[in-house]
Design a protein around this nucleic acid. Structure first.
Length: 567
RNA sequence: CGGGGUAUAGUGAAACGGCUAUCACGAGUCCUUUGGGAGGAUUUAUUCUGAGUUCGAAUCUCAGUACCCCGACCA
């Protein structure tokens, strides 16, 4: 491609608004341009990068047995209603009507479409398993787009959906996809951590994110030093060490406590350790249920874990007013002890206890009235939770579950995701069944697998850049060679360019009438792996100059040998 | 959706309520220059939209819209 004819405009001055290095370099290098917030043009050279990334994904997906196809982008809204995702994902669902008023969702992910497709066939167990995938634009009405390509409202995603006879068969596919994804990211130049995480509104029981570590990433995760456990903050489990649980139980005692309402106030007032206090946090969920989360005083509540235990999908903190009026307690003095007796019958109220409360005894805390505390509170004897489980939020430095190592906190960019869906969709969507060998209809066991192409592109740039610009890994570089013609050597450069085209070398040929410095600066910014300069200086000796973007020194190469080095 | 901020050329900025809205970069034309963003000449605007105040508005007021930041939320 001739630079002079290519729709590629690099930019010298760029807005201070862009703090994210990938956004800055991709805009400056002429790869992308913003339309409105969270929606980007991929300019010719940027689209070339996307295609390179898609090519790698496609090769690996096909090798793993995936079959590429395309589904409509407009999804009949009834399908989303069928799985209740108009509610669970409604906050970011884009809707559109046609002229007759038929409602469609602009697809943000396509589970319903693929299930709807395959339920139109009477499939038998002999057809299983299989995986279908597509590259297609996805729409998500993000509350807040940010960071260039990192969080956008419209993007190309590779999404794949696999259908299985049962869980065992699915697990083989799931493990395979872990390797396939790791290989894909590796090939495009990203080291990823495979991190357990929350399924969110996609549904299902477990999933793994592929995260490229980065300071500017939005995903917070925890990983042991040797990497044998990695989990997203939302779901990470850890060891809750035993405190004084074997102490003799003392009688429950009421006491006056003129103290502040924070946990520290309580600990200071009673001169007892923070961990011996009971922390009470009151939430209200989307069905207006009051949920009292109780946990050991040195830990915090993880709302995602809590949501799973109560099977809700949205939580907010109760207001002070609600604490007083609705559950007849007092902010800072809430206690699970005796609270149910104080409730109005119409208030739906659930007490959820963290299992850390089993590591202590003779705890202390409020007594549902201002300046009144209880001492020697013990689970089972003094209060009984409705639900007991793990609702604790992990922190850096905690010991991983089963003491397999200390947890380190990291941030990163989530570039891909694999989900176990199980029967989540096939149970909700009528007719999503196959005929098993016993002649009976059984629901499909499913998984799904996604990669954000644009975000992957951004993550690559985040990892591969220097102060002069992007340093593309060869697999995702839009061209392999950046050929620069300097004054007095145009004819020779032209000749070399023609020869490269004949040999199918992907080359960007800078034939512009610009000064040398400007051409070099653009070459660094655009970041192609190999730069070749043809100038008067070298051409007299029958050679040209070759410099790799990753190296600082150039080599003088005799012209006839050049193809040995770049093919 | 809550809080804060901004909107002037393609980009980044300047202009007290008052002269033809200024500068740099970019882009166009012409000329010179060609190993790290070179030089000269010249061209490049519906001051976000709408209303209002005023003799006079880029500047003040109101409304709308868009964008940015923080929070909430989320891939």
């Amino acid at each position: 491609m001739r630079f002079s004819k290519y729709f590629l405009k690099t930019d010298k001055n760029i807005s201070d608004d862009d703090k994210i290095i990938s956004a800055k370099l991709l805009k400056q290098g002429g790869f992308i341009r913003e339309s409105v917030a969270g929606r980007f043009y991929f300019l010719p050279i940027g689209q070339k990068v996307q295609q390179k990334i898609m090519k790698v994904i496609k090769e690996e997906m096909d090798l793993a047995g995936g079959q590429e196809m395309v589904a409509p982008i407009l999804h009949p809204l009834e399908l989303w209603k069928e799985t209740n995702r108009t509610n669970t994902a409604g906050f970011e669902l884009m809707k559109i009507n046609d002229r007759r008023g038929a409602e469609f969702a602009l697809g943000g992910t396509a589970e319903e479409m693929f299930v709807d497709l395959i339920r139109q066939y009477k499939l038998s167990y002999r057809d299983l398993p299989f995986q279908l995938y597509q590259f297609s634009p996805k729409f998500r009405d993000e509350l807040r787009a940010r960071g260039g390509l990192l969080r956008v409202r419209e993007f190309i995603m590779k999404d794949g959906y696999s259908f299985h006879r049962d869980e065992n068969d699915f697990k083989i596919e799931y493990e395979k996809m872990k390797n396939v994804y790791a290989k894909i990211f590796n090939r495009v130049g990203l080291q990823t951590s495979i991190v357990e995480s929350d399924n969110g509104y996609i549904g299902g029981e477990y999933c793994h994110e592929f995260i490229s570590e980065s300071e500017i990433g939005e995903s917070k995760y925890f990983i042991t030093e040797n990497g044998n456990y990695a989990a997203h903050e939302d779901i990470a489990v850890f060891e809750k060490e035993t405190k004084n649980k074997n102490d003799q139980l003392k009688p429950l005692t009421e006491t006056e406590a003129k103290r502040g309402i924070t946990m520290e106030d309580g600990a200071n007032f009673h001169k007892l350790p923070l961990w011996q206090q009971i922390k009470n946090v009151l939430f209200v969920d989307d069905k207006n249920r009051f949920i009292l989360a109780i946990i050991r005083g040195d830990l915090d509540v993880n709302e995602t874990k809590l949501l799973h235990l109560v099977k809700g999908f949205n939580l907010r903190r109760a207001t002070n007013e609600e604490i007083r009026k609705q559950i007849n307690s007092e902010p800072g003095f809430i206690s699970p002890v005796g609270i149910k007796k104080k409730l109005d019958k119409n208030t739906e109220f659930i007490i959820v206890a963290d299992d850390s409360l089993r590591t202590i005894s003779n705890a202390y805390g409020g007594n549902n009235e201002k300046n009144q505390d209880l001492l020697n509170v013990n689970i089972d004897r003094d209060y009984s939770p409705d639900i007991e489980g793990d609702i604790a939020l992990v922190k850096a430095g905690y010991e991983a579950k089963n003491k397999i190592g200390k947890l380190v906190e990291k941030k990163g960019i989530e570039v891909g995701n694999i989900f176990q869906l199980g029967y989540h969709y096939s149970s909700k969507m009528k007719g999503a069944v196959y005929i098993d060998s016993d002649g009976k209809e059984k629901p499909f066991y499913m998984g799904c697998y996604g990669i954000g192409v644009g975000r992957t592109m951004a993550a690559i740039v985040e990892k591969h850049n220097d102060q002069n610009g992007i340093v593309w890994p060869e697999s995702s570089a839009p061209f392999k060679v950046h050929l620069i013609a300097l004054d007095g050597a145009e004819k020779e450069a032209e000749h070399l360019y023609e020869e490269m085209l004949k040999k199918d070398v992907e080359v960007l040929y800078d034939d512009r009438n610009k000064n040398a410095g400007e051409k070099f600066a653009d070459a660094d910014l655009i970041g192609l792996p190999i730069r070749i300069v043809v100038s008067k200086k070298t051409i007299q000796q029958g050679s040209c100059e070759l410099k790799k973007r990753t190296e600082s020194e150039a080599k003088i190469i005799p012209l006839p040998l050049i193809f040995d080095l770049i093919i």
